[in-house]
Design a protein around this nucleic acid. Structure first.
Length: 191
DNA sequence: ATGGGTTTGAGCTTTACTTCA
DNA sequence: AATGAAGTAAAGCTCAAACCC
């Protein structure tokens, strides 16, 4: 990679004056001085870039075009093979490592967002299920309160009262059904 | 101007997987 | 075939510069 902007990236082994504690104990700092046309870099004077007396670490800011291309590439593929990475880096005038880092961060942050959204969705589900559970409990209580004694149901076939043990309450349609047949007994037959 | 919150580029560690002796 | 060391890529965590309100 012989690129004019990349030549400004300086690796400083063991350069500790830039280390503000970030990333723990690192013996190597990449001071990226890519002169990408970023507004934040335009007003940096040369003495700072030439590094007179330990200037603070400069942070690369991707241009809109670089970001756009990276996003576009990410939409197609969330991971890059080495050749794709190399090609994209060349196209963007970045180091392959920078492209790699961008994709790593993008994956991580995409996943984080998805996780947050899933969390919100599950919270809403929990809320509605809790409410449904409460409602059903209230309904059960009301039904229990209503049932002072077993209902007498007249069999449509024999016109005789059915034994209470053969009756169940259908929770869906709230009709009394017999356990011996599929036919539900209409509420009108309840006495 | 400035202070606090957010975004984002990057370093380091951990984890999962593959290769090879 | 089983196994442990070595290498590698991605995930995960973190920091801090840059940005924004």
């Amino acid at each position: 990679m012989s690129n004019s902007s990349l030549e400004l990236t300086i690796s400083v082994p063991g350069f500790s004056s830039f280390d503000h504690g970030g990333g723990g104990a690192c013996g190597m700092r990449n001071i990226d001085m890519n002169m990408v046309p970023s507004n934040s870099f335009e007003d940096q004077d040369d003495e700072e870039i030439s590094g007179g007396g330990g200037p603070p670490r400069k942070k690369l800011r991707l241009t809109k075009e670089q970001s756009r291309l990276l996003e576009e590439s990410f939409r197609e593929n969330h991971t890059l093979n080495p050749k794709q990475k190399e090609a994209l880096a060349y196209q963007l005038k970045l180091l392959p490592r920078q492209v790699e880092v961008w994709f790593q961060n993008r994956r991580a942050r995409t996943k984080l967002k998805q996780t947050e959204m899933e969390c919100e969705y599950l919270k809403r589900c929990f809320g509605s299920l809790t409410e449904e559970n409460r409602r059903l409990h209230r309904e059960v209580e009301q039904l229990r309160a209503l049932r002072v004694g077993p209902p007498t149901v007249i069999s449509p076939n024999t016109c005789q009262p059915l034994p209470a043990s053969t009756l169940t309450m259908c929770p869906r349609c709230e009709r009394v059904t017999t356990t011996t047949s599929n036919a539900s007994v209409k509420p009108s037959t309840l006495t």
